[in-house]
Design a protein around this nucleic acid. Structure first.
Lengths: 198, 198
DNA sequence: GCGGGAATGTGAACACCGTCAACATTCGTG
DNA sequence: CACGAATGTTGACGGTGTTCACATTCCCGC
């Protein structure tokens, strides 16, 4: 008959792919085991051979979302090729990371929400790449280039992270009026963060 | 028989009270209409006489959480009675507001989550008091007292809000290691925000 | 090659959930 | 007092996560 074989073959991958698609377009709240099983043409309980519970699946999607964000940060950071004094380039890379962080949230609000959803299940493998690490590196570069005082090596990351993460949350929030450009606010916050590192 | 009367009498208040209690202790995800109806000793569908849907109830709890936060900000702000130059007091009040914002999230993580939960239902009445307004006022006071340049009247609020809100999110997140004191990070971010308003 | 355990998928069931429609009771006002 | 409005109940529907017993297939050691 050669209909669908009894064993799917790559069910775990198919499930995570489908899950990401659902989350990207409809949000983490719309993620349903049964719906997922339907789209992958598999019985609901088959999911449990690969994920112990729905929360584990959510946790996996969340990690993938964080990694997608971190990859975005790296790509856009490396695209900054400023000529002139190296110190200036470190600052511009740092600011590009911040802008990209917020822009990711604006462009993919559901994925951003999923990336930091409250979840009790911790990922088995650490994130790679890791957004926090990208930020720490950028600040280290600025300090090494003399663009930012040594003092900031310790508190610089948390200050910057809080700023961009908070702005991303605010701009993504449902209370934010649609159609209002966020660009001015982004520039204001990024400038403010850079100023706070002086 | 004078058991419970057929009409509850103050069901809406009882429901919101019970809902807040559930959210405070177990989070917004644990909020269930049926469970709520059980604790108030009422049939599940009775809830629909007061809330058109679960989302409307969630929206109500969310608003109450935001108002509780705002009240906390006002109380702690007014408790700051610094002697000496008025300009100094405006800054200390501003920083106390920021610290209180983050501390609220640490002390009531579930209520803080609920306060900014993504929700399609907009509250009928505006928040009162309103945390954003408290922050704007504090910055206006600093500017009027000459502690902060006039330029910050426009971008000061978003810069400050992003910082404290982001820090609150980070400290509240599940990835934050338990038992690690957040005080140093709070001080660092608050100082950074004040510095960025220069 | 083949036999058997491990891995993977199925089907039916359970308890719970949000929501609704039809009905019952009480309140409040003319 | 009567009667409509407000409020609460009962029972049902479809959906959900999860589990358990069972079916099928894969793969490794003989």
């Amino acid at each position: 008959m050669a209909s669908r074989p009894y064993h799917h073959g790559a069910l775990e991958i198919a499930l995570t792919d489908a899950a990401i698609e659902v989350v990207r377009s409809s949000g983490i709240g719309a993620l349903t085991l049964r719906d997922l099983a339907r789209t992958v043409q598999v019985s609901p309980s088959a999911v449990y051979r690969h994920f112990p519970s729905r929360d584990h699946l959510v946790s996996r999607v969340s990690q993938l979302a964080r990694q997608a964000l971190a990859r975005d940060l790296l790509t856009r950071r490396d695209a900054v090729t400023t000529r002139g004094r190296p110190a200036r380039r470190t600052v511009e890379r740092f600011e590009e990371i911040g802008r990209t962080y917020v822009q990711f949230a604006i462009d993919n609000p559901h994925m951003f929400e999923a990336a930091f959803v409250r979840c009790d299940i911790r990922p088995v493998n650490p994130d790679h790449p890791d957004a926090w690490g990208v930020l720490v590196d950028a600040i280290d570069q600025m300090i090494d280039a003399g663009a930012v005082p040594e003092t900031r090596r310790q508190d610089g990351p948390i200050i910057s992270w809080a700023g961009v993460h908070g702005l991303a949350q605010i701009v993504t929030a449902s209370t934010w009026p649609d159609g209002v450009s966020a660009d001015a606010h982004i520039d204001a916050v990024i400038s403010g963060i850079t100023r706070s590192l002086r």
